[in-house]
Design a protein around this nucleic acid. Structure first.
Length: 412
RNA sequence: GCCCGGAUGGGGUAGUGGUUAUCCUCUGGGACUGUGGAUCCCAGGAGCCGGGUUCGAAUCCCGGUCCGGGCCCCA
């Protein structure tokens, strides 16, 4: 009986891997051009790292296990918490701000769907240590640039959870959090019911519903000012800066987060063509450091759903040029030696390992899309020469082995 | 966790409660031991798993698994 892949996991064949690596390479390059440096954290962590951040409820959606000493561990469901743990543990004296990026697989125990897998990849950044709107601006510009550069069609929505939190101050923190969660879920009926339950009525109730509906260009800030007495200059300066540098976005004051550690600006990117799982990027400013035993450290970051990007973006894989080294029976060692020379020169060279006849070797070279065949034949070997055939033009020349590199030209 | 639809060689498929499961493609070999894409020949390889109904099940029924779509969730 065959053994199948576990549910929600995927195999990636060479064509697809080349494409994924190409997309990954572009993302890395852009992040690095902004001064972000790669970090890596463990594939599994103490369960508590994630429950402290997101609550006990998420245990249901994680791969949780005990190790042989009975420790509760979990495969990472995301990377912000691990990166912040690392920051608290080992980065306390590094100059601020810190610019980190990561590209790694994550695991969630959820029902697989289009664009949702149990093992999936996230590309993300964390900009740690600045409370300025400039930090949010940089991170948004970076996310925007990456998605544009890989050819994703998306819309960017920016909100600010501080505004709603300010409005909700009178109801107390706990109730405010619950309200934020209901807003995040877009559960308007549930919100209605809850507000009734805790007897939030009249003016405040109206204001909550009005604020949630505010979505559009910067004019929504003026409308919001009518609703809540809050310092909007942060959002105004951010909006203005983003416009100045050519980032397209809309403001959506209805964006909330179900979790309490988001502190200010939050943003999301939605792509077309992904069905229900259309969010390709989510981010915002947060404060997790103190939750993990470090000093209060304002941070901002985002995570891109790499697999979703791969599904909708335009990037094609880069095919490697290949040279097939073909030899007659008895000349295999020559073939291996010639192949080795080509490889040393940076060329991908494949030799026959099937002990096939010449015709089959040629046929195979053709099938794998080799551009050249270097043919090792008895007559030429005697004179220290090889035959080089261009498989596209069918031209063939005999040349001294030492000269062969000159004839192998690849388009670029 | 819930709802809907699927599952036949590696890929794509046909078919019917009853001999040896169809075709295409593919893979390996040969025709063809100094040269690729063509052709021909030979070989290889399949009814998701478990249970039930039946003289007989790949086919009908039930359960599970996996895939696709949707809900929930989405840190």
């Amino acid at each position: 009986m065959k053994i199948e892949r576990p549910r929600g996991t995927r195999d990636f064949l060479p064509d697809e891997m080349e494409r994924r690596r190409e997309i990954e390479r572009k993302m890395r390059k852009i992040a690095e051009s902004f001064g972000y440096r790669e970090v890596m954290t463990p594939t599994f962590e103490h369960l508590e790292l994630f429950t402290r951040k997101s609550g006990e409820g998420i245990v249901e959606e994680m791969y949780v296990f005990k190790d042989k000493s009975g420790r509760d561990l979990a495969l990472r469901p995301e990377l912000t918490a691990p990166v912040m743990r690392m920051f608290v543990n080992e980065c306390s004296v590094m100059p601020r701000p810190l610019r980190f990026y990561y590209f790694a697989n994550c695991f969630r125990y959820e029902r697989p769907q289009k664009g949702r897998y149990r093992e999936f990849w996230q590309f993300g950044v964390e900009l740690i240590g600045s409370k300025s709107y400039l930090a949010d601006a940089e991170v948004i510009i970076l996310a925007d640039k990456i998605l544009k550069e890989v050819g994703v069609k998306f819309s960017l929505e920016i909100g600010h959870v501080g505004i709603m939190r300010h409005l909700l101050k009178p109801v107390g923190e706990e109730k405010a959090s619950k309200i934020m969660r209901l807003i995040d879920k877009e559960d308007r009926e549930g919100l209605e019911r809850y507000l009734e339950e805790i007897r939030v009525e009249g003016d405040l109730r109206e204001k909550i519903f009005s604020l949630v509906e505010l979505k559009g260009d910067e004019s929504v800030i003026d409308e919001a000012k009518e609703i809540v007495d809050y310092d909007f200059s942060y959002l105004e300066r951010l909006s203005s800066l983003l416009r100045d540098v050519g980032v397209d976005f809309i403001l959506n004051l209805g964006i909330a987060r179900g979790l309490d550690y988001y502190t200010g600006v939050v943003f999301e990117c939605y792509a077309e063509g992904l069905g229900a799982q259309k969010q390709v990027c989510g981010g915002g400013s947060y404060e997790l450091s103190s939750l993990f035993g470090g000093p209060v450290t304002p941070s901002t970051g985002f995570a891109i759903g790499f697999d979703r990007v791969c599904e909708v973006c335009r990037i094609e894989e880069k095919k490697r040029d290949v040279v097939a080294v073909i030899s007659f029976k008895g000349l295999e060692s020559h073939a291996f030696r010639v192949a080795s020379k080509l490889r040393d020169a940076g060329i991908t060279a494949v030799v026959d390992v099937m002990e096939r006849n010449l015709k089959k070797q040629m046929s195979f070279a053709n099938e794998i899309g080799a551009k050249y065949a270097v043919i090792i034949a008895p007559e030429e070997v005697k004179e220290g020469k090889v035959a080089i055939k261009n498989l596209e033009t069918q031209e063939q020349v005999v040349i001294a082995e030492g000269e062969m590199l000159k004839l192998l030209k690849f388009g670029e």
